[in-house]
């Protein structure tokens, strides 16, 4: 077990990088998706709704395969890590779209109407009144999305990215100690999730104080 530990730590670093990068991409996709779904243009609304429906209606594993194995056929040549990171980011972005949209529309309508009556433009109202309140509401549910994303990074093991799950599987095969390897990888995942969860709670508390 001590002998394999350094390899697990290396793998944990890959898992961490995947999580952070695809989380950032997911937040960007989520913000754009929510903006599209709430926009006044029917075309943008349709684009947003299609993005959410297609991504959430198909398995993340297939999405990774389409990008990594199918990409070269349409001129997109990516390393396994890049393809996995992009696919995971687009995937979680669809879930984050719904989270952000839900938070924005659950801000009391009266706030919007009052701000408009006071003479603020649509954009000013959104930036100064709706968004700050929505941000506070979306921290916890986004934390749930991020928790799912961290566990979801295991999927890139299927395209041979040497992250935690791939490493655990390899050493299950070579050491004949399945349970030890499972607990080692499991403990690292849970540490990452635990720390992230605390970070989210901290943000949530800080946002509530203001």
């Amino acid at each position: 077990m001590l002998r394999v530990f350094p390899y697990f730590l290396q793998a944990a670093w890959v898992t961490l990088q995947l999580s952070v990068l695809s989380c950032l991409l997911g937040l960007i996709c989520g913000a754009l998706g929510a903006a599209a779904r709430l926009s006044r243009s029917p075309v943008l609304r349709l684009v947003g709704a299609t993005y959410v429906s297609v991504i959430r209606g198909t398995p993340a594993l297939i999405q990774i395969f389409i990008l990594y194995f199918g990409g070269p056929q349409i001129g997109i040549q990516l390393e396994a890590f890049e393809a996995g990171m992009l696919a995971l980011g687009f995937n979680i972005g669809a879930y984050m779209t719904e989270t952000m949209r839900g938070a924005i529309i659950s801000v009391d309508r009266g706030q919007n109407e009052a701000a408009r009556t006071l003479g603020l433009s649509r954009f000013e109202t959104f930036r100064a009144v709706t968004l700050p309140q929505a941000m506070r509401l979306m921290i916890r549910p986004l934390g749930v999305n991020i928790n799912a994303l961290i566990k979801g990074t295991a999927l890139v093991a299927a395209v041979s990215v040497v992250e935690l799950t791939y490493t655990a599987q390899r050493y299950i095969g070579s050491t004949y100690k399945p349970f030890e390897m499972f607990f080692l990888a499991g403990a690292i995942y849970m540490t990452i999730i635990y720390v992230t969860g605390h970070g989210v709670s901290w943000l949530d508390r800080r946002a509530a104080l203001k």
């Binding site: 566990k151 979801g152 990074t153 295991a154 999927l155 093991a157 299927a158 935690l164 799950t165 655990a168 599987q169 299950i172 399945p178 349970f179 499972f182 990888a185 499991g186 995942y189 849970m190 999730i193 635990y194």
Partner: peptide, 11 residues
């Protein structure tokens, strides 16, 4: 709840 499904399937 804290570990990936894929890891559990391998186990």
């Amino acid at each position: 709840m804290g570990t990936p499904l894929l890891l559990q399937l391998f186990l």
